[in-house]
Amino acid sequence: KRRTSFTPQALEILNAHFEKNTHPSGQEMTEIAEKLNYDREVVRVWFCNKRQALK
């Protein structure tokens, strides 16, 4: 499976959402994914990886 390359704009939006809520609901992740035109699973993994990076 290929790595997803996030655009700077997408990272800005993802980081803004992460600052508000580090554990978004499934519905929220779906909405973010649709807004950014990414697969929901990609957004889920991004949040998971971001949380791990802060440990």
Rank of each mutant, 00 (worst) to 15 (best):
K1T: 10
R2Q: 13
R2Y: 15
R2H: 08
R2L: 13
R3K: 12
R3Y: 07
R3A: 08
S5M: 08
S5V: 13
F6M: 11
F6D: 05
T7H: 06
T7P: 14
T7I: 02
T7C: 10
P8M: 14
P8H: 07
Q9L: 05
Q9W: 07
A10N: 09
A10W: 01
A10Q: 09
A10F: 02
L11C: 03
L11S: 05
L11I: 15
L11Y: 04
L11K: 04
E12T: 12
I13Q: 08
L14V: 02
L14D: 00
L14Y: 01
L14F: 01
N15P: 04
N15Q: 05
N15Y: 02
N15V: 04
N15G: 09
A16L: 11
H17Q: 13
H17Y: 10
F18H: 02
F18I: 02
F18D: 02
E19D: 11
K20L: 08
K20P: 00
K20C: 05
K20G: 08
N21V: 04
N21T: 07
N21Y: 04
N21M: 03
T22L: 12
T22Q: 15
H23A: 11
H23P: 00
H23Y: 05
P24D: 01
P24R: 00
S25A: 07
G26L: 11
G26N: 11
G26D: 10
G26Q: 03
Q27R: 13
Q27C: 10
Q27D: 15
E28N: 04
E28A: 08
T30F: 06
E31C: 03
E31G: 11
E31Y: 03
I32D: 00
A33K: 03
A33N: 01
E34S: 11
K35F: 07
L36W: 02
L36A: 09
L36E: 01
N37R: 11
Y38L: 13
Y38H: 07
D39C: 09
D39M: 03
D39V: 03
E41L: 02
E41A: 06
E41V: 03
E41M: 03
E41N: 07
E41K: 13
V42P: 13
V43R: 00
R44Y: 14
R44M: 10
V45S: 15
V45H: 08
V45I: 10
W46N: 01
W46H: 02
F47T: 01
C48G: 12
N49W: 04
N49Y: 06
N49E: 15
K50Y: 00
R51C: 04
Q52R: 11
Q52D: 09
Q52F: 07
Q52S: 07
A53I: 09
A53V: 06
L54H: 08
L54F: 06
K55G: 06
K55Q: 03
K55Y: 04
